Every structure is written in C-alpha cells, then in structure tokens.
Amino acid sequence: MFDFRQLRYFVAVAEELSFTRAAQRLYLSQPPLSQQIQALEQDLGIRLLDRDKRNVSLTAPGQIFLEQARQILAMAEETRVKVTEAAAGFSGHLKLAYTVSVSFHPALPQTLLRLGQNAPNVRVWLSEMYTEPQFTALRAGQIDVGFVRDEPSHEEDAHALRLDVIDREPLLLALPSGHRLADRESLEIGEIAGEPFVIQPRELAATLYDRLVLLAARAGFHPLVRQQAQQINGLIALVAAGIGMALVPASMRAVQLAGVSYVPLADPDAYLLLAVASRIENPSPVVQQFLQTVSEAKQVLGL
C-alpha cells in the first residue's frame, strides 16, 4: 500500500511535469524519486504518468489520483495541526466556574480575552458557582478550573486541588451616600460598631461573611444584620436604599449605583482572596494553557 511519502513525491512530479524539477523541489536525487513513483504505480497496478526522455504527462487515472492525493495530504496536514494544537492546549474544551464577585474583577475578562487570542480554538463553558460548590465540582470532574474566593476548608479538597493566588483584593465598605462616614478617605472597622449591615447568607458566601465577623470581633463587636441578599450585586441595591452598609471587594466599585459611596477599610486583614483552583491530577493541556494565561493576565494587571 502506498504511503504519504509516495503521495508527496507523486504530487511534486505531477505538478512539475519533470522528474528533475520535482527532485530539486523535494531536495533529493532523481533516481530514488523515479523508484518511488514506479513502486507506487506497481502497487496500484496503474500507469499514472506517461514519460519519455523529454516529456512527462499525466494519464487519465493519474489526473484523478492527483486530485485524491492532494486531498489526502491536505487532510493529513489538517489532522497533524489539530493534534499538535490539542497537545499544546490550543484547542479543546474548558469548563470554567467563577463566583459572581469575580465577574467584576479585571482578572476574569483579561484572562478570557488573552485565552481567546492565544488559543482561539478552545471552547470555554462558563458557569456561576459559589466557592465551596466549586471545590466539590472540581473533585468530581464537573468543572476543570474555577475562580474562587477562599482556600479549601476540607482536608480532602486541600490535598486534591491546586490553588494559584491571583490577588488579595482590598475590602471596602459600601455606604449610603448620605451616611455621616460616606466622605471619609478610609475607616477603622471599630468606627462602624452598631451600624446596620446587609449581607449574603453564610451558606452562600461564607468567605465574605466570615471576614466581616472576624474584623468586627477584633474591634469588639458583632455585626448588626438588617437584611440579606442572595447575590453580592444585590447588596449594593440595598445600600442605595439606605437599609444598611455592606462589606464588598474593591472591584465592586464598578457598580456605580446612585446613592452609594465606597470607603476603604484601614485594616491589613481587610482583603478577599482571589485564586484559580484546579485538580492537581489533571494533565489536560487545555488546563495548563489556561493556567499559563492566568499568569500572563496577572502580570499585565500588575497583581
């Protein structure tokens, strides 16, 4: 049966209509080229070329074989490219989850933008998911990577997952614009003892809830919770309505709602982790390509 080398040799001769020029094009001497063409014709049992000392021409079967040979070689090259891209992580599928608050951080759009530029043939499936469910979904293979807001709290998650820290994002207080502290450049957490808060339920957003409780406890008080909202952007609407203040990551400044002011907290522990989580035992080239892209995005953003 003929092989790809013989097909390439035949196409060169058929296009050049000269064994001499075809041999030069292929960077080999003429005798081996002639031998391979003869072997191809013998294998097929068909004369593909008419040749004499001066001229070379295609027979009718040779013209058909030339068309087919070109298609076979093109398909082989396409397959080679696809396999090479897949091995390098430049094509394939990626299931990515992220918490709602991450959608306001520049790391997510910057990473997706760069991934689209670096690996346009990677199909990304996006889903919103809280941090703890992401760890469970990662271990179950339901997602490949996730933007999370905390480290794993369970030992089995910590052993199975890799965490690449992107940012320790400062936390702000979102206050009603008419509040007496809304014009301050920064606030100490103790200055808001007794003030009403709006929060997300702990079962949904344990990281932010626990950070608020920790900061308040260090200042000697427990937050007074006036109202809850399922999503972090819903908190901003409650703040605008004057129901209370909210602790939010700095990227939430992007939500410019009338009646809301943002004031930084002057506390070194007033931050929220942002990291990308993945399974340690996941050799997927696409995942590796994504993690490399996250690293590049982090450098571009100066994080």
Results as ranks from 00 to 15, higher is better:
89 G>I: 03
95 K>G: 06
95 K>L: 12
96 L>M: 05
96 L>G: 00
98 Y>G: 02
98 Y>T: 07
99 T>D: 15
99 T>H: 03
100 V>Y: 04
103 S>D: 11
104 F>S: 09
106 P>L: 14
106 P>E: 07
113 L>C: 08
114 R>E: 13
114 R>T: 07
115 L>A: 08
115 L>W: 05
115 L>R: 02
115 L>T: 04
115 L>C: 07
117 Q>I: 11
120 P>Y: 12
120 P>W: 12
121 N>R: 09
122 V>R: 00
122 V>A: 04
123 R>C: 12
123 R>N: 15
123 R>M: 11
127 S>Y: 07
128 E>K: 12
134 Q>I: 06
134 Q>R: 09
136 T>P: 15
138 L>E: 06
140 A>W: 15
142 Q>R: 10
143 I>A: 02
146 G>K: 03
147 F>R: 02
150 D>I: 05
151 E>A: 10
152 P>A: 10
153 S>V: 15
154 H>G: 11
154 H>Y: 15
159 H>T: 13
159 H>Q: 15
161 L>T: 03
162 R>K: 07
162 R>M: 13
164 D>I: 06
165 V>E: 12
166 I>R: 01
167 D>E: 10
169 E>P: 14
170 P>R: 13
171 L>G: 00
172 L>D: 02
172 L>T: 02
172 L>I: 09
173 L>F: 07
173 L>E: 02
